[in-house]
């Protein structure tokens, strides 16, 4: 006979599987039914799933909003560019690179892995300082970190190309590559969430004092979650770069931060499913609004939104969600199989 604890653990284990299946269905639908634009939108959405699930590992479990995760994406994108660009390209675009990096021509997967690793290492160092602050002050410090990375990347011209873009990244990101990384992020997020550290971090999110009294070292668990979450944001940034083929420091600044936050808030920061559903909901809405901005013809009249209204509408939608459904669309619940499906027999009485 299973205990109710074991049943709940089994139910929780179905969450990443169901979410992965949902993403698979999304990709299949976009690839088979839609046009080329739909396939591109599917890759873009799955890259955002990687980013936002990475972001959620920290923000969701700790309850601290970070504005700095776009900086990890920035670092990841450039690390991948440094290692995978053709050496000839690097000699002209980024003449200041040290010789060992300038001659490197790594396979893309290794580039993405290093992108995540360097982002995680950076998170470990900066998090060690920032995460000692209390919730709101830590959020502001992450914002300072974002601005710091953006200042450095925009001005360190021999190494990063400055504000002019780095071009020629190999465009290998198909919907399937993006799906692979998104599923990896999902698995890591749910394994971390179910681990002792994830539980301790959520306990400190719910009640800081009670958690401290139970012997939980909040700082240590926050730092672990921050590092892990930066890994996937770094990978997500690398994927973004290789999806468009061009990177620029301002592509990883406030608008990306806003988009990631909007997705997390709309879906609900309290659960992993909320993060995924938020990405899907916001991405589909953005896609519809972009098409509306280009104009839609009804019979004889063409209806078009003024350009730029897309972000205004998303911002308004985000405020409305905060007012009317503060916990987001999923309100902290997870998508999981019901108990009788995972036990295979009737639920034991408690």
């Amino acid at each position: 006979m299973l205990t109710s604890h074991q049943i709940r653990r089994r139910m929780a284990a179905t969450t990443p599987v169901l979410l992965a299946l949902l993403l698979l269905a999304f990709v299949l639908m976009a690839v088979t039914l839609g046009d080329r634009a739909a396939a591109r939108m599917a890759s873009e959405t799955l890259i955002r799933v990687t980013l936002v699930v990475g972001f959620w590992i920290f923000a969701g479990n700790s309850g601290v909003i970070s504005f700095g995760h776009a900086a990890f994406a920035c670092v990841g994108a450039y690390v991948s560019a440094w290692t995978t660009l053709q050496p000839g390209m690097k000699a002209t675009l980024l003449p200041g690179l040290p010789e060992a990096i300038a001659d490197a021509h790594w396979p893309v997967l290794a580039g993405a892995g290093l992108a995540g690793t360097i982002a995680a290492a950076l998170a470990l160092v900066t998090g060690a300082a920032i995460l000692r602050l209390s919730g709101i002050a830590a959020s502001i410090a992450t914002f300072a970190f974002l601005a710091m990375i953006n200042t450095i990347w925009s001005n360190w011209t021999p190494i990063t190309g400055g504000t002019s873009s780095v071009v020629g990244l190999e465009r290998y990101v198909t919907p399937w590559v993006a799906l692979g990384w998104a599923v990896a992020a999902l698995i890591a997020a749910s394994v971390y969430g179910a681990s002792a550290s994830g539980l301790a971090l959520r306990a400190s999110r719910e009640d800081e004092v009670a958690a401290a009294a139970s012997g939980i070292d909040r700082y240590r668990h926050r730092l672990l979650a921050f590092t892990l979450s930066a890994f996937f944001c770094g990978v997500g940034g690398a994927l973004m770069g290789h999806f468009i083929g061009v990177i620029n420091p301002d592509g990883f600044y406030l608008s990306l931060t806003f988009l990631m936050l909007a997705m997390l808030v709309v879906g609900g920061i309290g659960s992993l499913s909320g993060a995924v559903i938020g990405v899907l909901a916001v991405s589909v809405t953005v896609e519809l609004l972009v098409r509306l901005e280009k104009g839609v013809t009804f019979g004889a009249t063409t209806f078009a939104l003024p350009p730029g209204s897309q972000e205004i509408l998303i911002a308004i939608a985000m405020i409305l969600v905060l007012v009317f459904r503060p916990a987001g669309l999923l309100a902290g619940r997870e998508i999981m199989l019901p108990a009788r499906w995972v036990t295979g027999r009737s639920i034991p009485k408690e």
Partner: peptide
């Protein structure tokens, strides 16, 4: 709302 929700709301207002 919580301070975190307020902060996120003000960020959205700024973007708008």
């Amino acid at each position: 709302a919580s301070p975190v929700a307020l902060m996120v709301g003000s960020f959205a207002l700024g973007v708008a």
